[in-house]
Design a binder for these strands. Structure first.
Lengths: 118, 118
DNA sequence: CTTATGTATGAGCAACTGTTCATATGAAAG
DNA sequence: CTTTCATATGAACAGTTGCTCATACATAAG
């Protein structure tokens, strides 16, 4: 990231607009967290898991069975989903049951679906 | 992706639930498009651009200036954003002006922001 | 104790991604 | 025509990612 303001000769905006635009761009820190969050949705296996969990709580082997993925692959991805707080879990004997953490997940998936279906 | 149904001895769900879960998982084709869409949001530079454009239409050099990125980097990313139909553009003389394609973009960004701010 | 089952995790590797650099294209000005 | 400015794009390279395989851990059963 270089110092690079004014690469073009003029800016096609009023100073007022420039201020507003700069204000609208979140801090580096938030941008980092935000892009990290969306990266999690950017994988077929993980959205598959999220769609499945949006219906019912499931244990790891259930998820692996129904998504037709290996236990290891699912376990690795659940770790990612846990880290982003998109799923929560509870242990019961040998099994671990996962479910969606909150409703933002459903909303984001829904909006995405609407966008591609247009 | 291997044949891998029934990796565990029993499924902890009723047949009814299994059916519902399988119904909730979109087709491979849709999963591909969906994860591709979210991948686009999974990059700091691109969300920066989207936040900027959510305020005002801007030309490439404006975006580069205000996001403090090189013209080339921005141009490459705008290509990605165009491909996902998240931005639209119009040419005017030497310049190309970009703007947001629709409101799903704003909603998705907003929901993401809410999630990380909790 | 030993064994079996469900889950988690580290290493390794192929595939993908985002940037830089060099260059091409296209429109306006001289 | 040539030059200049705004934008687009291809190649190359470093960094990242998601899988598999092997293995470790934890709980339950024998």
């Amino acid at each position: 990231m270089k110092e690079q303001i004014d690469i073009c000769e003029y800016i096609n905006m009023t100073e007022e607009e420039v201020k507003e635009v700069l204000k609208s761009i979140p801090s580096e820190d938030k941008l980092y967290n935000l892009s990290d969050l969306f990266k999690v949705f950017g994988d077929k296996t993980r959205i598959k898991i999220l769609f499945a969990l949006s219906v019912a709580e499931m244990c790891v082997c259930d998820i692996a069975s129904l998504t037709r993925m290996t236990q290891s692959a699912i376990s690795h991805q659940l770790k990612t989903l846990r880290a982003s707080k998109l799923v929560k879990y509870r242990k019961e004997g040998k099994a671990t049951f996962y479910s969606l953490a909150d409703d933002h997940v459903r909303t984001i998936l829904q909006q995405g679906k609407e966008h591609i279906e247009e």
